[in-house]
Amino acid sequence: MRYIIKKFFMTIITLVVVSFCVFLAFSVIPGDPALKKLGMEASPELVAQVREEMGLNDPLVVRYYRWISAFVKGDFGTSYSYNKPVMWLIAGKIPNTIILGIMAFLITVVVSIPLGIFTAKHENGVIDRVISVTNQIIMAIPPFFSGILISMIFAGVIRLFAPKGYVSYKDNVPGFLWYLLFPAVALALPKIAMTVKMLRGSVLDEAGKDYTRTAYSRGNRTNEVLYRHVLKNAMIPVITFLGMVLADMVAGSIVVEKVFDVPGVSTVLINSISNRDYPVVQTIIMGIATIVIVINLLVDIVYCVIDPRIRIDE
């Protein structure tokens, strides 16, 4: 229990530090939000008045406290460019980004775990070597480039889907999921390669320990030892890694959204950065950071539950 409480407080501290860094970064970037809101032809007097109304003349600490207090309450401010609440801009885009990240995570789990176990069982075999080489190649390719290749092959050559043929889940759920499958695969590929490599190494490491040899000496078959003894311990570090993968999937989905023209958070983020619409950018970045940090906290808790040795060490 002390371990979980400690991790919880560390998470709160991390969120506070990250939020301050995010706010500070956009406070020191050159550019006047008031001038951006009014236009370059606005008079200095009007700009000064709007700066005062927007609270831009207040000390940094005061502005940060006002912003983070509102953020915690669910008030993310008003867009400079559209003069509308930030939530109004991103609410319709959030489901696409989250669903894409979850789909990529599920693909990673479904493909990598059986493949990792298979390569460990057939260590140094032909298939194991082929998969190992393939993994190295895939890990070297960034998701956005994988997305381009997948789009060229499956849209341009095989024609399994239409480029920029996104269908909203409100209109056609099967069509929506089918279209998201391809960016999800692009996002999942490097994580699949990493997870396969990690699980293979973890299984082989556990297979060489004394308890495994004891299990064999009692007459257990290879599959019995693997699935009853080895895999249980081998999965502990992999589960932790998959938790980090889930956090990365939600954040990383922004990378492939642009390639496949998925109307997710990436569209709003890129446009807002170009327009120096800081309230929108701050909200999106802080939202992603919060998701990543909270998922890591949950992973730590799960890790503590499945491996009691951590509580003893703490």
Rank of each mutant, 00 (worst) to 15 (best):
I153E: 05
I5W: 09
K6C: 06
F71V: 08
T267I: 10
L106W: 02
A234V: 05
F145H: 12
V238E: 07
P114M: 09
F23C: 13
S266R: 13
K164T: 01
V265K: 08
M139G: 12
V86W: 06
V203D: 04
K84I: 06
V130F: 15
I127A: 10
I102Y: 02
I301F: 04
A70E: 12
I94N: 11
V280I: 15
M198Q: 11
A104R: 01
I192M: 11
A188F: 06
W178G: 02
R228T: 13
P30E: 08
V294K: 07
G116E: 02
I153T: 07
G252N: 08
K164E: 00
R218Y: 04
T14K: 06
T119K: 03
H229K: 13
V133R: 14
I138K: 00
R51Y: 12
I99S: 10
C304N: 08
K191V: 00
V17I: 13
G252V: 00
L269Q: 03
I12A: 00
L269I: 05
V299D: 00
I13E: 04
P308K: 13
A25I: 12
F23H: 15
V259M: 07
M286D: 01
Y64M: 06
V265H: 06
I138C: 11
V110A: 14
M152W: 01
K7G: 05
Q49E: 15
L24I: 12
A247Q: 07
I4Y: 03
I301Y: 09
N135V: 13
I192D: 03
V185K: 00
I99G: 10
G92A: 14
T214K: 01
D210K: 15
T78C: 12
N275W: 08
R51A: 07
I107H: 09
M194V: 15
L231G: 11
V259S: 11
D277V: 07
A193D: 05
Y82W: 12
L35T: 14
T97C: 14
I68N: 01
A215C: 10
F9G: 03
K6E: 05
I98A: 05
K191S: 07
